[in-house]
C-alpha cells in the first residue's frame, strides 16, 4: 500500500515543531521582541497562497470574488513582510556591545 502524501507533510510538520522548540529555546531573552517581529514576518509566507488565489482564473475576468480575496490577502501579507523584516532590522541595529 502506498503512503498518503499527507503523512509526509505531517512528518515535516511535527519535525519542524521540534526544530522550532530547540531553536527558540536557544534565543537569548533580550531578543524576544525581535523574535516576535521576525516570526510575524516569516509567517506571512502565507502570501504564496494569496498569490495562487489571486492568479487563478479560467475566464478572462481576473477580478472574480475568489481572486479579490487573494488580492486582499496579498496586501495584508505584504504589509507584514516588509513591516516585519524592516522593523526587526531596525531593532537589531540598536543592539550594541560596550565600547571598550
Amino acid at each position: 500500500m502506498e503512503i498518503d502524501p499527507f503523512i509526509f507533510r505531517l512528518s515535516i510538520f511535527i519535525l519542524s515543531i521540534f526544530v522550532g522548540y530547540y531553536v527558540v529555546w536557544s534565543v537569548t531573552p533580550s531578543l524576544h521582541t525581535p523574535l516576535m517581529s521576525v516570526t510575524n514576518a516569516i509567517s506571512s509566507v502565507i502570501i504564496v497562497g494569496a498569490i495562487i488565489a489571486a492568479l487563478a482564473s479560467k475566464s478572462q475576468n481576473i477580478f472574480e470574488i475568489s481572486n479579490i480575496f487573494g488580492f486582499l490577502a496579498i496586501i495584508l501579507a505584504a504589509v507584514n513582510i516588509f513591516g516585519g523584516f524592516l522593523v526587526t532590522q531596525r531593532m537589531l541595529q540598536m543592539y550594541k556591545k560596550k565600547k571598550k
Binding site: F13, I17, V24, M36, T39, V48
Partner: peptide, 27 residues
C-alpha cells in the same frame, strides 16, 4: 499558517507555521 500550508500542500508554509507556532507557545 500551518493549517493553510496543509491545504496548499506547501512545505515552506508548513515548516514556518510549525516554527512560529512553537515559538509563540514557548514565549
Amino acid at each position: 499558517a500551518a493549517g493553510i500550508g496543509f491545504t496548499l500542500e506547501n512545505t515552506a508554509l508548513i515548516i514556518t507555521g510549525a516554527l512560529v507556532g512553537s515559538s509563540g507557545a514557548i514565549l
